[in-house]
Amino acid sequence: TGEEYIAVGDSTAQQVGDLTFKKGEILLVIEKKPDGWWIAKDAKGNEGLVPRTYLEPYS
């Protein structure tokens, strides 16, 4: 379980453990880390770190 967020920009994984996503994708945020990198899952079930500045709450 988690909260749904929509990507407001494209982000390409810079290192192992990062999640690549495109603008408009809905991501499920699993954990919000205080350093600004959140753990999220995409629609295909891929999981990784995403920069919170690229996400907005999805409603």
Rank of each mutant, 00 (worst) to 15 (best):
T1N: 12
T1D: 12
T1V: 13
G2V: 09
G2P: 12
G2L: 11
E3F: 09
E3M: 10
E4L: 15
E4V: 14
E4W: 15
E4S: 12
E4T: 14
E4H: 13
Y5L: 01
Y5T: 01
Y5I: 01
Y5N: 01
Y5W: 13
I6G: 02
I6N: 02
V8K: 09
V8Q: 06
G9P: 01
D10K: 03
S11C: 15
T12L: 11
Q14G: 12
Q15R: 15
Q15P: 05
V16E: 13
V16L: 11
V16P: 14
G17L: 05
G17T: 07
G17C: 06
L19C: 03
L19I: 05
T20E: 10
T20Y: 08
F21M: 03
F21P: 01
K22P: 02
K22T: 07
K23F: 06
K23Y: 06
K23M: 07
G24V: 01
G24N: 05
G24K: 02
E25K: 00
E25P: 00
I26G: 01
I26C: 06
I26V: 09
L27C: 02
L27M: 05
L28K: 07
L28G: 02
I30V: 08
E31R: 08
E31W: 11
E31A: 11
K32Q: 06
K32F: 06
K32G: 02
K33Y: 09
K33Q: 08
K33I: 06
K33M: 09
D35E: 06
D35S: 07
D35V: 02
G36L: 04
G36P: 03
G36E: 04
G36K: 03
G36V: 03
W37A: 07
W37C: 12
W37I: 13
W38S: 00
W38E: 00
W38T: 01
I39R: 10
I39M: 09
A40R: 00
A40G: 03
A40T: 03
A40P: 00
K41L: 11
K41T: 07
D42S: 04
D42F: 01
A43D: 09
K44A: 12
G45E: 03
N46S: 06
N46G: 05
E47W: 11
E47M: 14
E47R: 09
E47Y: 14
G48A: 03
G48W: 04
L49M: 10
L49A: 08
L49R: 15
L49P: 05
L49F: 12
L49S: 08
L49G: 06
L49E: 06
V50L: 04
P51N: 15
P51M: 13
P51R: 12
R52F: 14
R52Q: 15
T53H: 14
T53Y: 13
T53I: 13
Y54S: 13
Y54M: 15
Y54Q: 14
L55F: 06
L55Q: 01
L55I: 08
E56D: 05
E56K: 11
E56G: 04
P57M: 06
P57A: 08
P57H: 07
Y58T: 07
Y58V: 11
Y58M: 10
Y58E: 04
S59T: 12
S59G: 11
